[in-house]
Design a protein around this nucleic acid. Structure first.
Lengths: 161, 161
DNA sequence: TATTGTTATACTCTATAACTATA
DNA sequence: TATAGTTATAGAGTATAACAATA
C-alpha cells in the first residue's frame, strides 16, 4: 500500500553492503505480504470487503455451521476482534448467526445466498489478481511457499507448549 | 502473537472442504508472517527493540549516512511514520542524526558504537531464532521464498506505474 | 516550485480484562 | 467452574494533509 516512494531517485544510494538484511527473512516476508495485502485491498474494494471480512466469508461459505471461536482460531485473531467482522457480514446479510440448539452459548455461522453470490464473484477477482501477482513464479514454488508457511506455524505452535 | 486459541478442542470441526482457502496465498502469507513477527517480537524484547526499530537499525548500520527518506523507502513505510522510530533510536543513542552539509534539509543517519554493539547481539539472536523457525525448510526453499517475495514487489511496482 | 523532515490526525488491526449467559 | 460471545479499551502500525526549512 505504501506507494513505494514517489521520489524519482529514491533507489539510489545503497551499497550492496546489506548481507544482514538479505538474510533477514522477516523483512522479506513483511514486504512481500505488504504487496499482497495492498493488492488484495484494492481487489476487494468493489465488493466492499477487506482481507478480514473476505477471509471470514470464505471460511463460513466453506464450513457452514462453524462457531465464532472456531472462526477466530482459523483466522488467527482473538475472539473479541471477530465480533465486529461477523457483525458487519450479518448486517450486510451475507451470513446468518443462529443459536446452536445443543449449545445455546454458541452461534452457527452460515452464508446466505446473497453471501454466496458475492463470495463467488470476489473469489474470481482475488484468484485473478493473485495469479497476476505470482505470474512468473512457477506453481511448484507457490506450493513450496504455502507449505513452508504451514510448517512455520506448526513449529510456532510446538514452541508455545 | 495470537496465542493460537487456548481452547483444547479448537481444531475440531473442519471438513477438508476448503479448496478456496488452500489456494488463497494471501491467507497463508499472513499466517506465516504472523508467526515470524511474533517470534521476532519475543526475540527482540531483551534488546528493547521492535521489528521496526530493529529493521531501521539494521539499515543504518549497513548503510551509514543514508537519509530518512531513503530509509522510509527501504522499510516500505511513509516518512511521517519513520520519525518516531528514528527519534527513539536517537534518544537511546544508538544512532546519530547529522545535517548533510550539501543538502541541509536532509539528515545523515549513522550508528553509534553503542548502536553497533546492540545490533551485533540482536542480529545473533534473530539469526538463531529464524534458523529455529525455518528448521526443516531447506536453504534452497528459503532462497526461493525470498526471491519470490522480491519478484512480487517488482510486479507491484510495475503495476502502480 | 519541489523536496526533507515534521506535526497532527485518523483509521485499521490487534490484544487484554471483565462481563453475560449458558454449560 | 469453564466456555461462547460480548463490551470497553488501549496499543501498535499505517496513511494523508499541511506546514517550515531548504533546495
Amino acid at each position: 500500500m505504501t506507494k513505494a516512494n514517489k521520489s524519482k531517485q529514491a533507489t539510489i544510494a545503497f551499497k550492496a553492503n546489506d548481507e544482514t538484511l538479505q538474510s533477514f527473512l522477516g523483512y522479506h516476508l513483511k514486504r512481500g505480504f505488504n504487496v499482497v495485502q495492498g493488492d488484495l485491498t484494492k481487489t476487494l474494494k468493489p465488493f466492499e470487503l477487506r482481507m478480514l471480512t473476505y477471509t471470514a466469508l470464505t471460511l463460513i461459505v466453506d464450513n457452514p455451521g462453524l462457531s465464532q471461536s472456531q472462526l477466530a482460531d482459523a483466522m488467527d485473531i482473538e475472539r473479541p476482534n471477530l465480533v465486529v467482522i461477523v457483525d458487519e457480514l450479518e448486517q450486510r446479510e451475507l451470513i446468518t448467526r443462529d443459536r446452536v440448539p445443543t449449545d445455546r452459548r454458541a452461534y452457527a455461522l452460515r452464508s446466505t445466498l446473497k453471501g454466496q453470490h458475492l463470495f463467488k464473484r470476489a473469489v474470481a477477482a482475488v484468484t485473478l489478481h493473485e495469479q497476476a501477482l505470482f505470474q512468473g513464479i512457477d506453481p511448484e514454488t507457490r506450493t513450496l511457499i504455502v507449505s513452508a508457511m504451514k510448517q512455520i506455524q506448526l513449529r510456532a505452535a510446538k514452541d508455545s507448549r
